[in-house]
Structure formats: structure tokens, C-alpha cells
Write a protein that binds this DNA or RNA. Structure first.
Lengths: 221, 221
DNA sequence: ATGTCAAATAATATCGATATTTTGGAGGCC
DNA sequence: GGCCTCCAAAATATCGATATTATTTGACAT
């Protein structure tokens, strides 16, 4: 019946649309931590009815990006040093598990997927922040994607997003690009391709902890 | 100014009401795995409008108790041996972390909370399944409750529920009460009160793995 | 001035109705 | 006879309006 959506309009449901937009705005800080999220206001921002907005907010509470207070509406999740450090700790614990599971089942299909995601990431200009971050996440998730442990991967993905939120919020600080992020990624990938779990895990966690310490220090101020 | 709710009627929001009822029904198997959850049907079961039902279902997707398929509604999450084993593995990993964090900060307030929750559990008759399970969960969460890591505790709570669902679903199998669950609990508590992290953790994980193996075997059939 | 209470205001939560989409099945075409 | 198309029934997703609940405002008494 439909002629492959001749109208470029809506392809997806309104709820999902709201969910994705709100998520992005919270992750990037466009909706800052603690901000009251009034339904009417958001209705205008996205343009859709109240129901999809409410449902999107409900979904975001599960991602811990939105706080719901009964009878008192929603607000963007607050931030704190303690929260950041908990996220970092959980990531280290869970990604280590996922990575080892992924490596234990390594095969060429997965290796090729990993190499491709890496290639795609380095080919994406860092100027286009949104595109780069998408590719960056894809690379990190590709490392874990062979674990055959869907819940664990979901947790890792969630935590990745929570972490990147802090990165966006700290974006005005001094550039943390001194380190060669690019070569760190390459080292991680190479260790993974060698199926050396201990080395890959060590490099990966080091990668996270370094960035972590940087932000943690910055949050004191 | 409300006079402590003279009307016994509603104390909580309709959404929360729906959420809790649905959650309970899914956990106990009253709504079996894979079952299509039609809004109209549920509207009758709980009695409330469609909006609270939808919102409750959205919240349950985050708990991984409900699956949402865009434009195609909701269904109770399916079960599988692989899923059960992943839950078990994650629990062992995360509860170990949480337990050690909790013990590391042990103080008398927490010890008393733990003792009380244990006392309450053993005083609750196992005949009253619902009450006992509430007390049982409270005891296990009390062990972790001193970690000062809210996200980790939330994950543990979620995983606990997912696990208990399998227990309810397997309830028709041969009684697994051969073991003295009571003494296992007591040993765990005592080790915790001694602040012996290694011992407590070992006992706790053993406690989980034993039950786990039992169900895992049962799920073959 | 200051604290308290009550009305006014604003926001949330919920309902009932409608539009859109999926699903199941009957009829026609190859 | 099997397969595709199209239609009817059912279910989902969304909207607009209303009832409930929180918050603010301002008047009054201390």
C-alpha cells in the first residue's frame, strides 16, 4: 500500500521520536541536570501531544536520565561526583566481564565487525560531534557485541550514555585531547584481535579511568 | 492538612498502582512469559484508564519484565535457560561488589538493620508466600544496603526480581527445600556481622549458585 | 515586618474518543 | 491448488479535555 513513504514525514512512532530527541537533549546538556521537565513546555519543543511526551519520559527514567517524582512531574537527572564515580566503577566491572565473554567467543565475523566499526570511527571527522560520538560508541559496543549476553550489553550501553553525558557537560573545560585517544583505540582493537583478554581489558579500563580521573578532578571545582 | 487520609481509598497514583499490580502478576506468573498484554484487557483487570496502563507497561520495560514492540504493543518478557544463566551470572558479579562495599562501610546502624530484617524474615510464615518473599528480598537487600552505591543497588534489586520470577515459574517442580535455607541465611548474616567480606561473599554466591543449578537443571526438561 | 492561611494559579494525572496501524481472512488471479 | 491482494475487525497510538493535586500569591492577624 504505502509507496515506501513518499511523504518524508513520519517513519517512526511519536513516542520513539520524543524519546530519542529528549535523550539527546539530556545527554548533550541542552536540558541541564535537575531541570524541571514540564509537559506543556516539552509539547512545544517536540511538537506532539502530551501522551507521547509522558511515555518518553517514563522510558527515560529507566535509563536513569530522568527522575520521576510521583504527582510532581519529571526532571532531568541530577549529577554529582559520587554518581560519576559510581558509573565509572560499574563500567569497569561490567565492561571487563562483557569484553572477556566477547573475546572468548571470537570469530572472524566479529573481528571484521570490530575492524569496520573502528575504520568508520577514524573516518568520521571529530568536528561533527554528533556523528563522531555515534561512531565512537559503536566502536566500544562492537568490542562487547560478541558476548552473547544481551542484558549485560544493555547495562554497558546504558552506562556508556550516562558517562558520555558527563563528558558533554564538562566540554567547556580545558581540552582533554592531549592524550592520543586515537592510538589508545588502536591498541585496544589490536589486543582484541589477538584475543588477548587480559591485555585488552587492561587497556580498555585504563582508557576509561584516565578520562575518569580527568573529569573527577574537574568536578571538584 | 490532610488528616492522615481518613478516606482509606487512594493513597497513591493510578500509574503506580498499575505498575505494582502488573509487576506482581508478571513475577508470580499470573501473566505468563510471552503473553500478549492488551491494553483493553488490562484496563479491565486493574480498573483504570488506558493511560496509566500504558505508562506502567513502559516502566516495566525498563525492568526487563515487559517487551515493547513498536506499534505492536507489549508482551510479558519471554524466558529461557540462557536468560536465567545470564541473570545468575550478573547477580553474582554485582552482589559481590555491592556486598563488599557495604561491609567496608559497616557500622552499628547497618548491623542492626540487617539483624532486624533477618528477624522479620524468620518470623514470617512461609505459608504466606507473598509476605515471606517480601521479607526475603528485604533481607538480601539489607546486606547490600550500606554500599552507598545507589545504581548498583538498583541493578541488584532488578536482578533479584528477575531471578525470583524464575523461582515462581518453577514452583510446581519438586520442592527444593531439602537444603536448610534458614541456616544458610543465618550463616551469611553472621559472616557479615563479623565483617568477613570473603566469607560472606562466598556463602552468598554459593547460596545463589545452588538454587541456580537446581533451576537450570529443571529447565532442561 | 513576619508568619500563616486561603484563594487563585499552574501543572500533573487521568479519562474518553479518534485516527492509524496491524492482523486475519475471504475472494480473485495466475 | 497455492499465492497475492484487498477488505473488515481489532488493537495500538495519539489527541483534546477534565479532574486532581501542588504551588504561588496576597491578605490578614500577630
Amino acid at each position: 500500500m504505502n509507496v515506501l513513504q513518499s511523504t518524508p514525514g513520519k517513519e517512526t512512532s511519536a513516542t520513539r521520536e520524543c524519546y530519542q530527541t529528549l535523550r539527546q537533549k539530556i545527554l548533550t546538556g541542552a536540558l541541564p541536570p535537575g531541570k524541571k521537565l514540564k509537559i506543556e513546555e516539552l509539547r512545544g519543543l517536540l511538537n506532539s501531544g502530551a501522551s507521547p511526551v509522558r511515555e518518553a519520559l517514563s522510558l527515560l527514567t529507566s535509563d536513569m536520565l530522568v527522575e520521576r517524582i510521583d504527582q510532581r512531574g519529571f526532571r532531568a537527572a541530577p549529577i554529582s561526583k559520587a554518581n560519576f564515580e559510581e558509573i565509572l566503577m560499574l563500567r569497569c566491572t561490567l565492561e571487563d566481564k562483557a569484553l572477556r565473554a566477547s573475546l572468548a567467543r571470537a570469530d572472524t565475523t566479529w573481528e571484521e565487525r570490530l575492524v569496520l566499526s573502528h575504520h568508520h570511527m577514524i573516518r568520521t571527522k571529530r568536528q561533527d560531534v554528533e556523528a563522531f560520538e555515534t561512531a565512537h560508541k559503536a566502536f566500544h559496543m562492537a568490542l562487547l557485541s560478541n558476548s552473547d549476553l544481551p542484558m549485560l550489553e544493555r547495562y554497558c550501553s546504558q552506562l556508556y550514555d550516562l558517562n558520555i553525558r558527563y563528558r558533554f557537560l564538562a566540554a567547556d573545560g580545558p581540552l582533554y585531547g592531549k592524550r592520543s585517544i586515537a592510538s589508545e583505540h588502536e591498541n585496544i582493537m589490536n589486543a582484541a584481535l589477538e584475543h588477548d583478554a587480559d591485555a585488552t581489558s587492561a587497556l580498555l579500563l585504563e582508557h576509561y579511568r584516565r578520562t575518569g580521573e580527568y573529569f573527577s578532578a574537574q568536578m571538584e571545582a
